[in-house]
């Protein structure tokens, strides 16, 4: 089981943070990551209107492939955290919550971060490294 990558998508659909951990998925160029994040943002917006029950919906939470799955956490402010993991990875939801924690602490409370702009914060990097490390989970 492994965690392959983490994305943070801002509320406008821009990729503000992208980092790879365990090997296993093909590497994309940074431009491809941007396109993928923007597309996912659009898909998520549509899926959140698909619910058969009227009212607000969370939208897609897990998108699964044959060899990997992506778990999506949508926050109340519209920021999305996406974790790419192996299929059997059980800690994806818990890890995303902890990433959200780290984001709230090390990014939002940092006066040198501009909202909606790419995240360049040593504190956030360190928190993510401590949390996920090389992406190998058990």
């Amino acid at each position: 089981m492994a965690i392959f990558g983490l994305w943070v998508i801002n509320k406008a659909g821009g990729l503000v943070y992208q980092r790879n951990f365990a090997d296993g998925l093909a590497q994309l160029t940074s431009n491809e990551y941007l396109v993928l994040a923007g597309t996912l943002h659009g898909i998520h917006a549509i899926t959140s209107r698909l619910s058969p029950i009227p009212g607000s919906s969370s939208g897609a939470q897990v998108i699964e492939g044959e060899t990997f799955k992506m778990t999506i956490l949508l926050t109340a402010t519209g920021t999305k955290f996406v974790l790419l993991t192996s299929i059997a990875e059980p800690s994806a939801d818990g890890t995303l919550q902890k990433v959200y924690d780290a984001y709230a602490d090390a990014v939002m409370k940092n006066p040198f971060h501009t909202p909606e702009m790419p995240i360049r914060s040593d504190g956030f990097e360190q928190r993510i490294t401590a949390l996920i490390g090389d992406g190998r989970t058990s």
């Binding site: 006066p111 040198f112 040593d122």
Partner: peptide, 14 residues
């Protein structure tokens, strides 16, 4: 505790 000073301001201490 939650402040990461960017490199171009490395002299700064909040």
């Amino acid at each position: 505790r939650h402040i990461s000073v960017p490199k171009d301001l490395s002299q700064l201490s909040c």
